[in-house]
Simulated scan of single mutants.
Amino acid sequence: MKLVGTLPERVGFLHAVPIFDLFALLLVALLLGQSFMSQSGVQVELPVSRYQIARLSDASTITLTPGNPPVLWLEREQVSEKELLERLKQIRAETSGIPNVCIRSDQSISSEYERRVAEEALQAGFRVYLVGKSLGKE
Score class of each variant (00 low, 15 high):
residue 1 M to L: 12
residue 2 K to L: 12
residue 3 L to Y: 09
residue 3 L to W: 03
residue 3 L to P: 02
residue 12 G to M: 10
residue 13 F to Q: 02
residue 13 F to N: 01
residue 13 F to P: 00
residue 15 H to R: 15
residue 15 H to E: 04
residue 15 H to W: 10
residue 16 A to C: 03
residue 18 P to H: 07
residue 18 P to N: 11
residue 19 I to L: 14
residue 21 D to K: 04
residue 22 L to W: 12
residue 23 F to T: 11
residue 24 A to C: 07
residue 28 V to R: 14
residue 29 A to M: 08
residue 30 L to A: 08
residue 32 L to W: 11
residue 33 G to D: 02
residue 34 Q to H: 14
residue 38 S to W: 09
residue 39 Q to L: 12
residue 39 Q to A: 11
residue 43 Q to P: 04
residue 43 Q to Y: 12
residue 45 E to H: 08
residue 46 L to A: 04
residue 46 L to I: 06
residue 49 S to M: 09
residue 49 S to C: 14
residue 51 Y to I: 05
residue 53 I to R: 13
residue 53 I to V: 11
residue 54 A to Q: 10
residue 55 R to C: 09
residue 55 R to N: 12
residue 56 L to R: 13
residue 56 L to A: 13
residue 60 S to F: 08
residue 63 T to V: 08
residue 65 T to G: 08
residue 67 G to T: 05
residue 67 G to C: 05
residue 67 G to S: 13
residue 67 G to N: 11
residue 70 P to R: 03
residue 71 V to D: 06
residue 71 V to C: 02
residue 72 L to C: 01
residue 73 W to N: 08
residue 74 L to F: 06
residue 75 E to F: 01
residue 75 E to P: 11
residue 77 E to Y: 02
residue 78 Q to P: 01
residue 79 V to W: 10
residue 80 S to G: 10
residue 81 E to C: 00
residue 82 K to Y: 11
residue 82 K to M: 04
residue 83 E to W: 02
residue 83 E to D: 13
residue 84 L to T: 06
residue 87 R to P: 00
residue 88 L to F: 11
residue 89 K to Y: 07
residue 90 Q to N: 03
residue 91 I to L: 15
residue 91 I to P: 01
residue 94 E to Y: 00
residue 95 T to F: 01
residue 97 G to F: 07
residue 98 I to E: 08
residue 98 I to C: 06
residue 100 N to Q: 07
residue 102 C to I: 07
residue 103 I to W: 06
residue 104 R to Y: 04
residue 104 R to H: 07
residue 106 D to L: 06
residue 106 D to E: 11
residue 107 Q to V: 13
residue 111 S to K: 12
residue 112 E to L: 14
residue 114 E to Q: 15
residue 114 E to C: 04
residue 115 R to K: 15
residue 116 R to Q: 14
residue 116 R to W: 11
residue 118 A to G: 03
residue 120 E to Q: 13
residue 120 E to L: 14
residue 125 G to A: 09
residue 129 Y to I: 04
residue 130 L to P: 02
residue 131 V to W: 13
residue 131 V to R: 13
residue 131 V to T: 08
residue 132 G to F: 10
residue 134 S to E: 07
residue 134 S to K: 12
residue 136 G to N: 09
residue 137 K to A: 14
